[in-house]
Design a protein around this nucleic acid. Structure first.
Length: 468
RNA sequence: GCUCCUAUCGUCUAGAGGCCUAGGACGGAGCCCUCUCACGGCUUAAACCGGGGUUCGAAUCCCCGUAGGAGCGCCA
């Protein structure tokens, strides 16, 4: 069975690149009847925070990327790591190194001065016939992996293709610090092995770690998983995203007005394609996602296209599904959703003209709250003195009929006909009177949703303004 | 410096040697529709990084440049 994992380190929010990696992992496993798990890589206790852990859960939950297991924390697996390190020490695939940080720093500096690639020189690496330096007093040792000195490592990456690494390029990395805490490259290997991960899907900044991890896995007698290294996402300007430069947490996309499925759809198409298809339901993504069509090169995040996708979702999704998210946005800008028409009805009428839920909430305010005033430009144009007869005719015509879209439509058209005006000359003043601005859903729908009482009151107020 | 990766319209991409006069989508321009804003429909401009090979034939395979990027921690 396919088992994938998303393994973020909790040092910040869940950003867009992480979300895409998580999505790919999730889709690949779930589309094959497999399992997906979330693992928190918190071995760096200096930088890991609970707030970041919470932010990651929150982001994953909003996106609907559910783990099939309770989340796993590496810090709770220290006993297991210690056990494996002991095994490796006993087997001779790892050894203790008594170099101090100062020694290592000096080594690196010298190598860089000689324009060489910095690497551990193996001074504590046991070799047949080699005499190791005397163990210094008072230096707690680190444990290093004894990487094979010869040969090559072949990585068959599902995205990048075959990559060959020479073992001579790889040095003996530290797998346990002097204080006994194991390091990332080691924990990952043990976890992936223990958890039966079949496909490691992660950012391509890890490509260079992979041969080391494969070597450790082999030293442990395990079969390496398949790897898929996903390229990163660049900002719209082609620059790398960072905290300083445009990197946003997924929850900020919620605040901006994205639907979670829409964000997911945009993200899945960023670097992956399925012919010419642009829009996918969650089920389609799961069924169709594969690594044969994932691009190896980095992609830019194009906000315009992301909005387009969001708009497509707003237009096509069942309003009942959108409603809770819409309500969240209404409340966020201080609107009480109870003080107006049914949200599903408002969504139905507004979604054609809104690319974001923020836009929808703002454009729908007049349905839920009394008008705080008119857009002055629109009022000047449509509520001038010459609008007065139109408004009073409307007041009269709308007093009678059933408050249903068809009857309201007929009433407005009737006024235009009677006064010998184009529909626009009647609908626009009416629109500004009702909405406070010259933009709203079709006029009959606007009237209908706003209700008789509010409509007539606002018409009356507009008439006062036009005459006065 | 060394190792590794990447390269098709402005952007996301299709393209598995002939189906390519390089397709789609976003964005742009224009037209139509129209009670506003939109939606929608139609039309249009816009790309194979450069140079060498391989081949009857290359966007596609190989090599070399060039340009971007990643990594080289007792970080992950």
């Amino acid at each position: 069975m396919t088992v994938t994992r998303f393994a973020p380190s909790p040092t910040g929010f869940l950003h867009i690149g992480g979300a895409r990696t998580a999505l790919f992992s999730y889709l690949y496993a779930k589309g094959r009847g497999g399992q997906f798990l979330l693992r928190i890589e918190d071995t760096d206790r200096e930088r890991s925070t609970q707030a970041a852990v919470d932010a990651i859960f929150e982001g994953m939950a909003w996106l609907g990327l559910k783990s099939d297991f309770p989340e796993i924390y590496q810090t709770r697996r220290f006993d297991r790591y210690a056990e494996v390190i002991e095994q490796m020490l006993a087997a001779g695939t790892a050894y203790r190194c008594y170099c101090t940080r100062e020694e290592l720093d000096a080594m690196r500096a010298e190598q860089q001065a000689r324009k060489e690639r910095p690497r551990y020189d193996g001074r504590w690496r046991p070799e047949p016939g080699k005499t190791l330096p005397p163990v210094p007093a008072g230096v707690p040792p680190v444990v290093r992996f004894r990487n094979p000195a010869e040969g090559q490592v072949l990585l068959r990456d599902l995205i990048k293709g075959e990559i060959v690494f020479d073992n001579r390029e790889l040095d003996d990395l530290i797998i346990a610090r002097a204080d006994g805490v194991p390091t990332y490259n080691f924990c990952v290997v043990v976890d992936d092995m223990d958890m039966g991960i079949t496909h490691v899907i992660r950012g391509d900044d890890h490509v260079n770690n992979t041969p080391r991890q494969i070597n450790i896995l082999k030293a442990l007698g395990a079969t390496p998983p398949q790897y898929a290294h996903v390229s990163m996402i660049l900002g719209g300007d082609g620059q790398k995203l960072s905290k300083r430069h445009g990197a946003l947490g997924v929850m900020e996309y919620r605040t901006m007005g994205f639907m979670p499925e829409a964000l997911l759809n945009y993200l899945v198409r960023l670097g992956w394609s399925h012919g010419d298809q642009e829009l996918f339901t969650r089920e389609e993504m799961m069924a169709k996602f594969d690594f044969d069509h994932v691009s190896a090169s980095p992609a830019r995040f194009d906000m315009e296209k992301a909005w387009w996708v969001n708009h497509q979702y707003l237009k096509a999704t069942d309003p009942a599904v959108i409603a809770p998210e819409f309500e969240w946005h209404l409340r966020r800008i201080g609107i009480d959703p109870a003080q107006g028409p049914a949200l599903t009805a408002v969504i139905e009428q507004q979604r054609e003209r809104c690319r974001s839920l923020v836009e929808m909430a703002e454009k729908s305010r007049f349905f839920f709250e009394e008008l705080s005033g008119y857009n002055e430009k629109d009022a000047a144009k449509h509520l001038s003195a010459k609008a007065a007869p139109v408004l009073s005719a409307l007041l009269e015509a709308l007093a009678g009929p059933d408050w249903q879209p068809e009857a309201l439509h007929a009433a407005v058209h009737g006024v235009a006909e009677r006064l010998g005006l184009k529909l626009g000359d009647v609908a626009q003043p009416l629109r500004v009177a009702l909405a406070g601005m010259a933009v709203s859903p079709p006029i009959d729908q606007t009237l209908f949703l706003l209700g008789r009482r509010r409509s007539l009151d606002r018409l009356q107020a507009a008439l006062v303004r036009a005459t006065g």
